[in-house]
Design a binder for these strands. Structure first.
Lengths: 197, 197
DNA sequence: CTTTTGTCTAACATTTTTGTTAAACGAAAG
DNA sequence: CTTTCGTTTAACAAAAATGTTAGACAAAAG
């Protein structure tokens, strides 16, 4: 992992993120984090006072990153078709980079039902849903409730990476083939959803 | 929760499963489990000797249940169309009953990469993939690699429930509406995948 | 040079979770 | 009735994880 020299505080935060989001070690202890960062465990407490504070910060960053990722593409000034392609592209790139980030947010959002709710929803989704409805009326998308469309979109983008180990096990495939399949998916997902031309 | 009188051992196992799979409390301690089961914590150790043994048993049961669910429908002697409908129906019913079971299996399969692999894959998926290929050639399914089709299928079935809290947050909906949307999905997923008549 | 300041660490303390033991209890067998 | 045997529990022990303190250290300020 690339290490910034800017400071141990950021190093610790980044390492925690790396353990949680890239390696999927959801139960990593302060010791695990310190070891991975190559610092003394006490330093974690020096900067964050408690594991929980570090934890909260990282969860919050994850939730924000996820939300920003979604927002930044939803509000892009593009035609629907191009926007949809961009959403898929950006989201899959992000997901590949941090395969477990969404799993992490899911787990934490489940654990603390109230906390996440208010911080995720925003106006962009609503205006995107209106666009979706318009495209359905125009015959470019299969007709359904826009909310269903969005759930389908996220499902197709997120699930395969999220459950990559399980998918590999069920389909009996190894990493190289899995990588190849993931590459195909940007185009594939678009084709599954967009039936216009 | 309905409690069988058959014995505390099974009660403890069931309670653990309930906490893990239905409530999503992935980090429940022996104390949590004992409290939820209404038994003394020592009893957990009396029957299972260690938390880890109980844990392994429950993971194994989950993996087996998931595999059995998949197998039982895959090998059903039905035409493809009916089989696909049945797969979706059974899987969604199961997922609704144990919303976190797959999340749990995913998390654990991630944690212990080697363990799960061998125990999940089996012949039924392979023969199902052949059926899928045949239906693609017949023009009843959009043409793609069968493995992609299966990932799409699982994604559409599993993700919305798995990430229900996140979906509710993003789409700004409450439980009743979410339930309604879930009910619609059996038909919807089928229609998205099966383009024949 | 010495003082200050922020960073870092070892040693210690506390809390949380897990695991063990010895004994209590009640039902069924003798 | 008393013995046996599986179940259950309280009390104790150990381990794992978190949190605190006092002081070392080095670089910058005086």
């Amino acid at each position: 992992m690339i290490v910034k020299d800017i400071g141990k505080e950021q190093l610790i935060r980044d390492t925690a993120k790396h353990l949680f989001f890239s390696e999927g070690k959801l139960h990593a202890t302060t010791q695990d984090i310190a070891d991975a960062a190559g610092v003394n465990r006490t330093l974690v407490h020096y900067y964050f006072r408690s594991r929980n504070i570090l934890f909260e910060q990282v969860v919050e960053e994850a939730r924000l990153d996820l939300r920003n990722t979604i927002d930044s593409v939803l509000k892009a000034p593009l035609g629907f078709k191009e926007k949809l392609q961009k959403i898929i592209s950006v989201f899959i790139d992000e997901t590949t980079k941090y395969p477990f980030r969404e799993l992490f947010v899911i787990t934490e959002t489940n654990r603390n039902k109230d906390l996440g709710t208010s911080k995720m929803n925003n106006g962009f989704i609503k205006s995107f849903m209106i666009e979706v409805k318009r495209e359905m009326d125009a015959g470019n998308l299969k007709n359904m409730e826009p909310k269903q469309f969005i759930m389908n979109l996220f499902a197709l983008m997120a699930y395969p990476v999220l459950a990559s180990q399980l998918n590999k096990a069920i389909l009996d495939i190894k990493e190289p083939e899995f990588k190849r399949l993931m590459k195909q998916r940007k185009q594939l997902i678009f084709e599954m959803l967009y039936i216009g031309n």
